[in-house]
């Protein structure tokens, strides 16, 4: 009887062993990175903090890759 109880206990333990598993992966929330801070790309020299100008520049560059639109504008 005692052996059965012990066996059942172990079996139950093994059976529910996975229940305690939880993700260990670090969750990265915005602004909670503890390392060295990186500046936004538009802060520096050519744009001097003008985010919209930077976005326009990037967008123009992106569209420059589209030869269909380039052909149309020429």
């Amino acid at each position: 009887m005692k052996a059965i109880l012990i066996f059942a206990g172990i079996a139950l333990g093994l059976l529910v062993a996975g229940c305690g598993d939880r993700p260990v992966a670090t969750v990265y929330k915005k602004g909670e990175y503890s390392g060295k801070r990186d500046t936004q790309p538009w802060i520096g020299e050519p744009f001097k903090g003008d985010r919209l100008a930077w976005e326009r520049a990037i967008k123009a560059r992106s569209n420059g890759q589209n030869e269909y639109s380039r052909a149309a504008t020429k």
Binding site: G20, D21, R22, P23, V24
Partner: peptide, 8 residues
Amino acid sequence: TRRVFTYY
């Protein structure tokens, strides 16, 4: 796998 064995 690493996640699991790190935890247990």
